[in-house]
Design a protein around this nucleic acid. Structure first.
Length: 291
DNA sequence: AACACGTGGGA
DNA sequence: TTCCCAAGTGT
């Protein structure tokens, strides 16, 4: 049975080229899949691998993490980036423990209600942890579909209804096949149909690729300006949190003041971290990771 | 609907 | 060096 014009070739390619990632192993728990998906939000696989191993070794179940203060999750997060994801995971663990009997929910809507779990992650966990049929639309899938089907170099900056409709239309009917298709397209985007230099010679669907057929027209949309980092509040927040993570206990204000010259920006960043729940201001004037 | 939100590696 | 990008989410 042919589900879409690409499925046979893509599934066969995945069969031979899938990476051996631990969260794809047969025995991988739903919790371990959820943790991997959150860590992989905007963070490359190679950097997630060791962090995931350490995290799962320390907190094999949601209850294990729920029993700890949130600051331990932030500390364990180390330099993965976007540390509020650590807070989200901790909050997920508490909710799962208190309201879902300690089991990661298998219902898409319940997953979506968890903190830090959006459209992509809910679909990914329902698919990869529970074998359900959902359109999984991440940056890899969006790029592959933009090229192979739509014939353009890059998808729009934000996912559109049209992209979601297309992904659902291409999704195989049979649930296990749909799951396989989803992970296979993601893998194709990650390994072959990459953003900068796609390896079209290795692509199983190059002969049906609309972008290739059109002669690889260059992206012509509005300039996609990257976000600057140096000098931003984000950089200051990063430095502040690095000091807290490196210290086994609370730190004095001067230790934090030392990371950035501009006091206005420094205070603004610290206040924001406190508001976000990533830093705890103690009564004695010192600061700590949240308890 | 833009924008904020970390970090590091490759070209 | 600078810029782009990496399994996004929340506001």
């Amino acid at each position: 049975m042919i589900d879409n014009p690409y499925s046979t070739a893509v599934l066969a390619w995945y069969e031979r080229n899938a990476r051996d990632l631990p969260w794809r192993a047969d025995g991988a728990s739903p919790w371990s899949v959820l943790v991997s998906e959150v860590m992989l939000q905007q963070t490359p696989v190679v950097r997630v691998l060791p962090a995931w191993e350490a995290w799962m070794r320390r907190w094999p179940t949601p209850a294990d993490l729920a029993a700890e203060p949130s600051g331990e999750a932030v500390r364990m997060w180390n330099r993965l980036g976007y540390p509020r994801r650590a807070l989200n995971l901790h909050a997920c663990a508490r909710t799962i423990t208190e309201r879902h009997g300690g089991e990661v929910p298998d219902d898409h809507a319940e997953l979506l209600a968890l903190p830090g779990i959006g459209a992509y992650t809910a679909a990914a966990v329902a698919s990869f942890a529970y074998g359900q049929r959902h359109a999984v639309l991440d940056t890899n899938v969006r790029r592959v579909l933009a090229r192979a089907v739509t014939g353009v170099q890059y998808p729009p900056k934000a996912a559109t209804r049209g992209e979601t409709a297309l992904a659902e239309e291409l999704l195989p009917e049979n649930a296990p096949t749909a799951v396989r298709w989803s992970v296979a397209v993601m893998e194709l985007g990650a390994l072959v149909c990459t953003a900068r230099s796609p390896a079209c010679a290795d692509c199983p669907i190059a002969d049906r690729c609309a972008w290739r057929a059109a002669g690889y027209p260059a992206y012509d949309g509005p300039p996609r300006r990257g976000q600057r980092y140096a000098g931003t509040d984000r950089q200051v927040r990063g430095r502040l949190l690095a000091v807290l993570r490196a210290s086994p206990g609370p730190v004095d204000k001067p230790a934090l003041d030392a990371v950035w010259d501009d006091p206005v920006q420094r205070e603004r960043a610290l206040d924001a971290l406190i508001a976000d729940g990533l830093v705890d201001p103690l009564d004695d004037g010192r600061y700590a990771l949240p308890g």
